[in-house]
Design a protein around this nucleic acid. Structure first.
Length: 228
DNA sequence: TGATGATCATTA
DNA sequence: TAATGATCATCA
């Protein structure tokens, strides 16, 4: 493998690259890419995702667009336990808090980001040193009809509440497959929203997250994994 | 033990 | 500040 591959030309090439990584350990990738493996992820929370970006040829940067803009594909690493079940929720995108108009689901930032996702499972058991964690078989996924319906339903309900200035009432308990949670370096980071009185208010930024049971169902639908 | 709310690093 | 990459830490 080249040390830092250029962007893939098409989805097939991207998937082939990801499949070539399956079974290898994070420490192997770090060597190939000439990167140091942190002792733990406490102060390097995005390290695994960025390692995969480099290994697959994604353009680095924190732009509000898919990791592979030409292909319309979003890359997501998915921390899984020994049974292949996701251990964490998956961040998708920032939740719009200020200029929220009732747009169509199809045109939403969320729907566009989730239109095509390359899921890369990565072992993530606390006892397993970072360098020894293995990369799993990747999955190039698009929502099926049922998944799209679930996502759309949650998105519409949550967006509606924000439209009504009810952000303050939204907790992570809303949403069957999708949730809104704080997304910031710390609780003092503020962004603007409009409350139910129509007044400007400063609140902690939020993001849309996929619940683990949803991403777990995606893996089970495509791979023959235990239901438990 | 799982889910929620809080937090960390980096780039533009 | 706001977007990206996420996991941490606490509590029910």
């Amino acid at each position: 493998m080249p040390q830092r591959p250029p962007p893939p030309h098409d989805a097939t090439e991207l998937l082939a690259r990801a499949e070539a990584l399956a079974g290898h350990r994070l420490g192997d990738l770090a060597v190939w890419l000439d990167l140091d493996v942190p002792a733990d992820l406490r102060r390097h929370k995005g390290w695994v995702g960025q390692l995969l970006e480099l290994a697959l040829g994604a353009e680095s940067g924190s732009l509000a667009e898919p990791d592979f803009p030409q292909l319309g594909i979003e890359l997501k690493s998915l921390p899984v336990d020994a049974q292949g079940r996701p251990r964490e929720s998956t961040y998708v995108c920032t939740a719009p808090l200020e200029a929220v108009t009732r747009g169509a689901w199809e045109e939403s930032w969320l729907a566009r980001k989730l239109a095509r996702v390359l899921w890369v499972p990565v072992e993530a058991e606390a006892a397993l040193p970072l360098a020894e964690r293995r990369i799993g078989t990747p999955l190039l996924w698009s929502p099926d009809a049922e998944e799209a319906t679930l996502l759309r339903r949650d998105w519409e309900e949550l967006t509606e509440r924000i439209c009504h200035g009810e952000l303050a009432a939204i907790t992570a308990r809303f949403g069957e497959v999708l949730q809104i949670r704080p997304k910031a370096a710390h609780s003092r980071v503020l962004t603007r929203t409009v409350n139910s009185e129509g007044e400007l208010e400063w609140v902690n930024p939020r993001g849309f997250y996929l619940r683990p049971h949803f991403t777990g169902a995606i893996l089970r639908r495509h791979f023959d994994l235990p239901t438990a």
